[in-house]
Each structure stands twice: as structure tokens, then as C-alpha cells.
Simulated assay, not measured.
Amino acid sequence: MTSEDKDLLVQALGTDEPPLHLDLDAIEARGRARRRRRGHIAIAATVLGVGAIAGAVALGVGAPSALESAAPGSLVAPTEREIAYCYQSADIGSTAPNQHVAIGLGGRDGRADLTAEIMQICSDSWRSNVYDFQPRQPAGTTYRVPQLVACVLTGNAANATEDAVGVFPGNETTCASLGLPVAKL
């Protein structure tokens, strides 16, 4: 506290009050010491926490994600809400052109039924053959839509985002054969 601050305090209290015998410098010093101790405690807690997390990661300890622990073919809710994929065939390893098409979903909130939405988009895409998944027909032709299934993609899917929905021609056994869980509707 500066001398101006102290003068202002005396002025605010007035002269008709009994004299204050406060050692403002000592009070300020105790406050600084207390803040330093709190800072040191916070730093120590952070270092210990980071060390524990790093140790757990190094040992491979920790709860697996829902996707990692899901058996192929089991039902899992997708967590990636920004992007999904329509696949031409049931092949997650192919990097062939037009094997799968990314569909931007714009980060739907938790209330949107993401799986049903992407299933509808992919079904409409097959019906109009917008991605040339089928041989071209004369204009105005409605294309056959195969049975489609929504799976949750893992890190094994080539050029795709993990935990996103991938819609494939097939059924629930298709997801299992690809080593993927079925996406919850």
C-alpha cells in the first residue's frame, strides 16, 4: 500500500475515530505469503496429477473408451457428430476413389438422432445415385437402394474419422464382419 493509499484511508476514517494501530505493511506481507503458499500448493497438485496421468498412460492403465471395449456387431452410440460417411461397399480398408464419401453434419447437438439422419442421407444418395455408386442410367431414373446398415468407425477405417457413423450396404452382420460395432439409432 502506498503512502497515498494510507493517507486516503486515514482521510476516509476521519480524525474523530480512535487511532488505528494497524501495521498495514505486515498485513500485506502476510497476504503475499499466503498467496505464494497457495500457488506452490496448486503447482505441486498439478505436477502430481500430471505425473499420475502420464504414469497411467505409460502403463496402459485407464478405462477403455466405449468403442475400444465394444465387441464387433454390438450396439454403440457414435460420439463424432461433425462428420459421417456413405460407403459404396463394405470395405473400410479401401482407398479407391469414391469408395466412401464424407458428409458434413455441422455438429448436431445431443438431441438429434445422428444415426437415423445419416442413414436417410445415404439412402437418398443411393436412390439418386449422386455419388455414382451404381452404373449410370437414363435421366430421371430412380436407382435401387440396397439394404443399408450404420456402423461406428474405428481407427482401422482408411481416410475416415474414428467414432463417426459409416453407412454400408448390408446388415448388422456386415458391421461385425468389418470388426465394427453397430451404430445406435
Rank of each mutant, 00 (worst) to 15 (best):
E28I: 12
I118C: 02
T2N: 03
R32V: 13
Y85M: 09
R35Q: 15
P78N: 10
L75Q: 11
V61D: 09
G60I: 02
V167E: 04
S65Y: 00
E28P: 00
V165C: 06
V101D: 07
R30N: 09
R136K: 14
I121H: 01
P97V: 13
G104F: 14
A52D: 01
T15Q: 10
G31V: 11
I92S: 07
Y131K: 02
W126T: 04
R144A: 14
Q147E: 13
L22R: 10
S69E: 13
A52V: 11
Y131N: 15
I121Q: 13
Q99V: 03
L8D: 11
T154Y: 03
F168S: 08
R127D: 09
C122H: 07
N159I: 09
A84E: 01
M119K: 12
V152L: 04
V101T: 15
G166F: 05
G49N: 12
G166R: 06
A29P: 01
A157W: 09
A102E: 13
K6V: 15
G73W: 08
Y131V: 01
P72Q: 06
A26E: 12
G155Y: 05
A70Y: 00
G93Q: 12
A29Y: 06
A42L: 12
R144G: 10
E28R: 13
V152H: 08
D91H: 03
C122M: 08
P181A: 00
A70I: 05
I83Q: 12
E82V: 07
L67P: 07
L8V: 08
R35T: 12
G110Y: 11
H40S: 13
L67D: 01
A42G: 08
L153A: 00
F133T: 07
C122R: 10
G110D: 15
A90G: 08
A150L: 06
L20C: 04
A58H: 06
A42F: 00
V47R: 11
V50I: 15
E172S: 14
E68L: 02
E162W: 03
E28S: 13
A77S: 15
G39Y: 02
Y143W: 09
V182K: 11
A90K: 09
G31L: 15
S125A: 15
P18T: 09
R36M: 10
R144E: 14
G39Q: 14
A52H: 00
S94A: 13
A44E: 09
V76P: 04
C151Q: 04
A90S: 14
E82L: 12
Q11I: 05
P169Y: 08
A90I: 07
H40W: 06
